[in-house]
């Protein structure tokens, strides 16, 4: 085969590109974990939440969440009979230190733990201009912090207010559903620390997960269903006043 100098010069870069793609290979994954076999979600059982703040503290420890920022937080709602649609909502320090005691019993109170809803059709991943945030094949919304520019488009796009710009790293940060734990067969830090079982990690692709029986027999909602985000944090017995 006769290759002229010119031909060679043209072919070399092409070969280099081809070789690069060969070298790329497949990314490393946990040995016994198959992404295609899971579709993660979370169940929040409102009547079980006592507002202790254990989940908020556990999350901050597990994920090194900076002080004053929250990947999960707890809100306390106070709905009075006269004003059903505009509840009084409080979340002092994200509920991290618990809530002040209430003595009078006027109207109803309940706690709503919040976190990233790990939406299947998430608005936050759609607005990222560089592909730094995405829904993983197992249904977890993640951020590639090496790739993130910190433009905060996603922070604005999230209808649930679940993202923030990390004050030191200057990139977007949010709940990863403790991806480093659930891929090792553990539950999330918030679920691990919840004393009443108000938060439960659920795998919708696992036919033996108790979530399926629960969803069949309970009145379950997601937050802001009208936004069609495909939210996967299911709230049992959620009051209509919660926004």
């Amino acid at each position: 085969m006769n290759i002229s100098r010119r031909r060679l010069l043209i072919l070399l870069p092409a070969a280099a590109v081809a070789w690069e793609s060969v070298l790329a290979g497949t990314p490393e994954s946990s040995p016994n974990y198959k992404m295609s076999e899971h579709w993660w979600s979370m169940l929040i059982d409102i009547p079980k939440c006592i507002g202790c703040g254990n989940c908020v503290r556990a999350c901050q420890i597990e994920n090194d969440v900076p002080e004053g920022y929250f990947r999960t937080w707890v809100e306390r709602y106070h709905v009075t009979d006269e004003n059903m649609t505009s509840p009084d909502v409080m979340s002092p320090n994200g509920g991290k230190d618990g809530f002040p005691s209430v003595m009078e019993d006027h109207g109803k109170y309940f706690f709503v733990p919040k976190l990233c809803n790990h939406c299947a059709d998430s608005p936050c991943t759609q607005v990222c201009p560089v592909g730094a945030t995405f829904v993983s094949p197992d249904g977890v919304v993640l951020i590639d912090q090496k790739y993130c520019l910190g433009c905060a488009y996603c922070v604005q796009a999230c209808p649930y207010g679940c993202r923030y710009i990390h004050p030191e790293k200057r990139v977007a940060d949010k709940c990863t559903l403790c991806y480093h734990r659930i891929t090792k067969g553990l539950t999330t830090a918030c679920c691990e620390a919840c004393p009443t079982g108000a938060r439960q990690l659920a795998d919708l692709k696992n036919p033996n997960d108790p979530i399926h029986a629960f969803l069949k027999t309970h009145s379950v909602q997601v937050l802001k269903p009208q936004m069609a985000t495909g939210a996967k944090v299911y709230y049992n017995d959620l009051d209509g006043s919660v926004r």
Binding site: P27, S29, F134, H180
Partner: peptide, 15 residues
């Protein structure tokens, strides 16, 4: 590899 993002980031977060 899986979509418009760096697939290796998944392994980095899981690690």
């Amino acid at each position: 590899q899986y979509g418009h993002y760096r697939a290796a980031a998944i392994g980095e977060i899981a690690g």
